[in-house]
């Protein structure tokens, strides 16, 4: 039995906060159905079960702590310049709680 369906695709899309057209749902479903084939290729790599996951390109990378110094922050006007709906010096959103 296939573990994927367009309903599942719909659920993922909803969780990711967008809608899909019927055509997009079919494309995404095919992508998910192909995942097992991809994983079979990965599973065939010798040593795959014991290797440590690689999360950073540079094995020797060291983060250096910055000095704890105050720096000038970005002016609020700059930060708001691209927001469509602004009230006073804040981004305006629809009311969440009524009353």
């Amino acid at each position: 039995m296939n573990k994927f369906s367009t309903d599942l695709v719909d659920l993922f899309a909803s969780e990711q906060m967008f809608d899909l057209t019927e055509e997009e749902k079919c494309i995404a479903l095919a992508d998910l159905e192909a995942m097992e084939q991809h994983m079979e290729k990965i599973d065939r790599i010798p040593g795959i079960k014991t290797a440590a996951p690689m999360t950073h390109c540079l094995d020797d990378f060291m983060l250096e702590l910055r000095e704890d110094e105050a720096v000038e922050s970005t002016p609020i006007e700059d930060l708001l310049a691209n927001a469509d709906e602004v009230f006073d010096r804040e981004i305006e959103l629809p009311k969440v709680v009524n009353g």
Binding site: M39, I42, D43, I45, P46, G47, I48, K49, A51, A52, P53, M54, T55
Partner: peptide, 9 residues
């Protein structure tokens, strides 16, 4: 995680 393991190898 398996993809990350493959990447390392």
């Amino acid at each position: 995680k398996n993809a990350q393991r493959g990447r390392r190898l």
